[in-house]
Amino acid sequence: MNGFTTIIMQDIKLAIRTGGSTITLLTFYISIGVIMPIAIGPDKQLLAFLAPAIVWIAALLSTLLGLERLFVADHEDGTLLVLTHADISMPAIALAKLIAHWLITALPLILATPVLAVMLFMDWPTFVAIILALLLGSPALIALGGVGAAIAVTLKRGGVIAPILIMPLAVPILIFGISATSSLAGPGASNAALLFLSAFSLLSVAFAPFAIALALRTAAE
C-alpha cells in the first residue's frame, strides 16, 4: 500500500472511529429539507418545482460547513508538518485528502438524498437526474472547498471567512448542477449542463490540489 491510499484509509478510519461529524453533517443536510417546506408551505407542486434548487443549496451549505476543519486539525496536531517531509508530493497528499473527504462527506449526503426527495415530493426522473448531477458536481464542491479550507489553516481567527470566499466560486456548480437536474428531467432534455458540470468538476479536481499544496506549504513555513 503506498502513501496515497494510506492517507485515504487513515482519514476514513479516523472518521469512522470518531463518527460524529458525518452524522452532524447529515442532520444539517436533512434539516434544510425540513425547514424549507415549513418556510415555503406544504404546497406539493411548489415544493416539487423548487426541489432541485433546495437540494443543491442544502448540498452546497453542508459541504462548506463540513470542510471547515479539513486541514485545520492536521495543522494543529502537526500532521501537516510531518507530511511535508514525507516522500509523497504535496499535491498528491492534497488529492488524497480530497478523495477521503468526498467519501466521508459528499457520498453520505448523496446517499441521504432520497429522504429529501420524499419530503420535497420529487418525481422519479428528477430524482435520478439530481443523484447523477450531485455525483458529477460534488467533486468540484469538495475541491473548491478544499482550497478554502487550506486558506483557513493560515488564519488565526475568522472561521466564517472560508465559506464566504468559496461561495462566489461555487456559482458555476450551482448553475450547471441545477440546470442539469431540470434539463435531464424535463422535456427536450439536453446534456449541455451535465457536460459543463463534469468539465468544471474535472478542472477543479485537477487544479485544486496544486492550489491547496501551495497554501499549505506557506502555512507550514
Binding site: 486558506i151 493560515t154 456559482v171 501551495l214
Partner: peptide
C-alpha cells in the same frame, strides 16, 4: 505571510472569473 496564501486565492479566483461569467451568461 498572508500574502502568499492570498495570492493563491487571487489566482484561483482569476481562473474562475471567466467560468463564472460563462455560467452566468448561460
Amino acid at each position: 505571510k498572508g500574502a502568499r496564501t492570498i495570492a493563491v486565492f487571487t489566482l484561483v479566483g482569476a481562473i474562475n472569473i471567466p467560468i463564472i461569467k460563462f455560467s452566468v451568461d448561460w
